[in-house]
Design a protein around this nucleic acid. Structure first.
Lengths: 214, 214
DNA sequence: GGACACATGTAACGGGTTACATGATTTC
DNA sequence: GAAATCATGTAACCCGTTACATGTGTCC
């Protein structure tokens, strides 16, 4: 009979951490930083997860923990084991799930008829701000690579793929919001009376390059 | 001292259900169907949630439940109350969270160096399939509106906004995958040796219209 | 030497998932 | 009339969150 820990299946979160460890050893705090900067943009998890998960990896022999000291306070550094690398490689050869989007603001847009036109415009403005801020960050990060001061230059081939997706996604969110704002402006105060823009529906139906134009 | 139920704050999931009820009364099963078709694309939840949440709404007086019978089996129909409408309207005037993306396949791309080039190309091919399938669905749905047989024609002004975002997002995912495939093809078998494409990084840094071109 | 940001965790709770169970309806 | 599919739920489990607690450098 297997112990509890052994039975637990590894989650995508486990592999995300294992993947980071495959790059170099990290303290838990550094791991959290990586989550904010890169990985967390497409696999977001709370900080506290990053304290629990590595312990599971250690219990399974996929990582090792070592204690360091800062003053009289301890901290833990995690290192991947050969077994961990094998497990990670095996995982990469299995199919993964497609993108899952969770967007509260869009839920509010979807039910906008129960609110005022101003509410809807305010939500769209917030969407634009979100996009602007994210893009500012993403651009700055790309610039560090051009300046030769990027964090992991040896990984730039890969991270430019994921990074460019993120930038395009954030740009799409922003340009969609701008277009939506322009459309909603033309609507009457009572959203129930708004008429659909047939051109938009046609573009979706035809699959014509839904574009960043205008 | 308040009872447990009263104290529980409503979640976005609660409001999503309340929003659906604001359109018309539904059985739980129909609610689940709506999740698959529309809302679930940007607020995905398991079916079982849709049985628990409405009970909370009823306990708070925001909805009412009535029992119908099909054969000797009972089913529940939920209807929104005036208090429920007020609550929904109030919610719409508060700010919402920005998009949250969770994408396991992109995690696999991010750690592709630990796997083979074939693994990476397989993942990218799966991304394309995902995009193709979703777009097929989205296009068909848009076509029903052009044909005048859409489910809620009176809501078309709103749903064409959310629907066009979804279509553009799915198209972006697909075109990104295609471009990534082309780039990865040029890489050596050992991904560690791959050289970054400087043009991509420049485009992100400049914020130049990251486009669907090529 | 007080304030404040940075660093390092723990504990409890609950939203959400997977798995299970079973009744109706249609198909052939 | 068996099989497959649609319809309607329940229950247990756990991943992930929020809230809490406390140590360490640094700025002025």
């Amino acid at each position: 009979m297997k112990s509890r820990i052994e039975r637990q299946a590894l989650t995508t979160t486990s592999f995300a951490l294992l993947g980071l460890l495959s790059i170099k050893p990290w303290t838990t705090y550094e791991l959290a930083g990586q989550m904010d900067k890169g990985l967390g943009k497409f696999w977001p998890r709370a900080r506290s997860m990053l304290f629990k998960e590595p312990q599971k990896l250690v219990a399974l022999g996929l990582a090792e923990a070592s204690s360091e000291h800062v003053g009289r306070r301890a901290r833990t550094v995690y290192t991947i084991t050969p077994a961990g690398r094998l497990r990670l490689t095996a995982w990469l050869s299995t199919p993964g799930d497609g993108p899952v989007l969770e967007w509260e603001q869009l839920v509010k847009v979807f039910f906008a008829e129960s609110g005022s036109k101003e509410d809807l415009l305010a939500t769209l403005a917030a969407v634009r701000s979100w996009s602007d801020e994210r893009l500012r960050y993403q651009r700055a990060k790309a610039q560090t690579y051009l300046d030769g001061v990027g964090t992991f230059p040896e990984r730039a081939a890969i991270t430019s793929l994921t990074g460019s997706f993120l930038a395009e996604f954030e740009a799409l969110v922003g340009s969609w919001a701008t277009r939506a704002q322009a459309i909603v402006e033309t609507w009457p105060a009572d959203i129930h009376d708004a008429q659909p823009d047939r051109r938009i529906i046609e573009r979706v139906a035809k699959g014509t390059p839904l574009a960043f134009d205008d």
